[in-house]
């Protein structure tokens, strides 16, 4: 079987903060239709990579190319912030939850569809009076939002403020919100952090479902149960450098990975694929 087409190509990525090199000369490829996990001990530079992909940081040097199925190629390192979501169709979530806490659950999903609802300023002003095809667009957006609420099991809380949801539900809502921009690549920064075993099981299911729907996923995660179960491909970072790259089985057997994790002295982060599923 031929490998799927590359979706994100990171080449010679370098990120320096003053004298500190957070990521040095990193190359990896995330392929279409796959879940690619980026793992590594704390401080390995995983979130920095995400911040470069989503326009939070401008890389010191290197290239981040995103290839759409239609042949369009986007240089993410040069695209202005909002265009990364709007045109390149890359969505992301954060380690700490960043929902619009004061808005309702449904509104959070509607905000993510802003560009479909308000393609131009004129449309935005017409919408005040319900003109310019706004009602039809709003209905489509509402259907999509309700569809995602159904998927994550929050349909009955659509009109509650997002900040009032329990933690696990807020995590799922963040993923649903990211999916509402119709991304080709979804970047998740530790989505399982703070979840109990049952919730991380649900999360794994949700992510597999998103992949089946055609969206590729780039995942930073410390919960090795989740990573080993759902990833197609794993990239391991340590001190800003890539130390291993391959399938879960290959990475787990790589002596450099074991050394990096044992060097941290943290038992939780050793590859242990079965404990989470057993607990569920």
């Amino acid at each position: 079987m031929a490998a799927p087409a590359p979706l994100l190509e990171v080449t010679h990525l370098l990120m320096r903060f003053g004298g500190l090199t957070a990521v040095s000369d990193l190359d990896f490829v995330a392929r279409t239709g796959e879940i690619t996990a980026v793992i590594g001990p704390n401080g390995a530079g995983k979130t920095t990579v995400f911040n470069c992909i989503t326009g939070f940081y401008r890389p010191t040097s290197g290239a981040l190319a995103l290839m759409h199925a239609d042949g369009h190629r986007y240089a993410l390192e040069r695209l202005p912030g909002h265009q990364i979501a709007r045109r390149a169709k890359v969505a992301r979530t954060f380690q700490n939850i960043r929902l619009f806490a004061g808005m309702t659950v449904l509104e959070n999903l509607m905000v993510a569809q802003h560009n479909a609802l308000m393609p131009s300023v004129v449309n935005g002003l017409l919408a005040v009076f319900g003109l310019g095809g706004h009602r039809a667009a709003e209905r489509v957006a509402l259907d999509k939002a309700r569809g995602w609420l159904d998927t994550i099991g929050l349909l009955d809380r659509a009109d509650d403020p997002a900040g009032a949801l329990p933690y696990g539900a807020q995590r799922r809502l963040e993923i649903a919100r990211a999916m509402c921009i119709d991304p080709v690549l979804l970047c998740l920064d530790e989505p399982a952090a703070g979840l109990n075993p049952r919730e991380s099981e649900e999360l794994s299911e949700l992510l597999t479902r998103i992949r089946a729907g055609g969206c590729s996923i780039l995942l930073i995660e410390h919960d090795m149960g989740v990573v080993m179960r759902i990833s197609d491909h794993i990239v391991v970072l340590d001190h800003g450098k890539k130390i291993s790259d391959g399938t879960p089985a290959e990475v787990r057997a790589d002596p450099r990975v074991i050394a990096a994790y044992l060097g941290e002295g943290d038992e939780d982060e050793e590859p242990a694929p079965h404990d989470a599923s057993a607990a569920a």
Partner: peptide, 25 residues
């Protein structure tokens, strides 16, 4: 009730996140 208003409230709460969702802040 309108997309523009929602975008305004989103910018009010978290400018960076609004931009990550494709809103031209």
């Amino acid at each position: 009730r309108t997309p523009l208003g929602r975008a305004m409230r989103a910018c009010e709460q978290d400018l960076k996140m609004a931009s990550l969702l494709g809103i031209d802040t």
